[in-house]
Design a protein around this nucleic acid. Sequence first.
RNA 1: CGCGGGGUGGAGCAGUCUGGUAGCUCGUCAGGCUCAUAACCUGAAGGUCGCAAGUUCAAAUCUUGCCCCCGCAACCA
Length: 502
Amino acid sequence: MMMNLRSDFYVTTPIYYVNDNPHIGHAYTTILADVLARYHRWQGQDVFFLTGLDEHGQKVQQAAQGRGLCEQSHCDELAASFVSLWQKLDIQNDDFIRTTQKRHIKAVQKALRKIDEGGDVYSSEYEGWYSVAEERFITQTEKESGQFREIKRFKERNYFFKMSKYQQRLIDYINTHPGFIQPEYRRNEVLGFLRQPLGDLCISRPKARMGWGIEIPFDKDYVTYVWFDALINYLTAAGYSEDEEKLRNWWPASVHLIGKDILTTHAVYWPTMLFALELPLPKTIFAHGWWLIGETKMSKSLGNVIDPLSLIDQYGVDPVRYYLMREMVLGQDAHFTLESFIKRYNSDLANDFGNLLNRVSGLIGKYFNGSVPLEGTRGTPEEEIRTTANNLVQKIQDLINAMRVHEAIEEILQLVRQVNKYLEVQAPWKVAKTNLVRAGTILYTSTEALRISAVLLSPVMPGRTHTVLDILGATGTAPLWGKLKAGIKLKSHEALFPRVET
RNA sequence: CGCGGGGUGGAGCAGUCUGGUAGCUCGUCAGGCUCAUAACCUGAAGGUCGCAAGUUCAAAUCUUGCCCCCGCAACCA
């Protein structure tokens, strides 16, 4: 990974289009960004985590009209629903950009002027098939698909960005920067795409047809088209229009998280735009897969289609964050089912992690009056646990830097399982009857390993891990072996993750 | 032959680059333990590693051919 050449970390989600309410896809990307941001903060880096909304365009205009609202009111309402979801999901973003904000309008117009002055913009008549029903141009293939109504031959003057000019430069860049587009097979897809001659990008819409957008600074009859508007947001928030100092600090972004559907726009349009703007390219563009809800027909007939977000109210936000992060395999699609959620919840969180807390706190309560015992002399089994825990810290950092979140989580759970096994073998409930000092060593070791697991899991489950650390009297401590203080009275508690009976 | 990814015990994945007893989680069965959220621990059953041929002392791993699944293929968030 070549992501961390600097000590700071700028992570973005796509800006979400406000023609509909937020769904699991939005939630997933944003949680992933939040988890990465928290891990990097925890590593001591300065972090800038950006998310936001794309509020311009025809579909927003239509959605607003359909609800009998003006565009801005419609956007404000949906913005509120996104913000409240982020609160519910424990998202700690540093900025929330909306493309209707003044700073963004300034940034887009500045960028348009810049590429125009650079000679990369021209105006031209575009002729093609136009679907009146869809209110957009369609391709020949789409026309032949028969899925579009009221098709007309249509001619329109528009502004174009000379994207084709940068094709070879982009190919060279991708070839010399292996980590730029991830996962690797997405990079190959982009390179495959770039084997065809690249066209130029239409970046305008006449106001007469679509007025809800940012006016083009050199032609008052036009607004800029969605993608040109949207992509610039990553620059706006980094200070492009109003703070050169800030821009130098944060640009280029460390990682743009995106869904696989918007790979081309981010891996082709955006880099060529940045070339034209004479700005460096983001270090990494990472495309993840999609959540499929159940198994289509099967789950429908079983009546199992549920809104994943509704699980938050029932099970809490941490298990939902955990499930989404653990279940999605790098870059691939994942299946969301209630069954797999409960399985994951019970086996990992209730049986392994939560139950370990109950075991150690119960034993310490019984044999040490609730106070953390002295570590004493470590034997071979204790050194094994300690070594695993110490090595785990570095391993987790490496996995996170490599964007392998689900593997990082699995590694932490391996430690938890190892400690459960260790307890079984050492049986402190037997040892305590003859050798209390030795029992103390066993329990200190187990508790300390649990504490380190909780610290390492905290970016994924900030709430419940904080509860664990609070019970152990160890909030804010580092994942270094020995930070757990002997003599601390454990707080009483309920089951951390009550088992879900099925 | 458009480009690319993949096919590993019932399920989901790792291992393939750097050939050499096929690993993890869940599930199933049997036992153990009893501190714990009927949790935990141990053991077992279960795989011709898509098919075929080749290279090699040795192939899931390298080569070739074939079959099947999936993604991408431009202005559509």
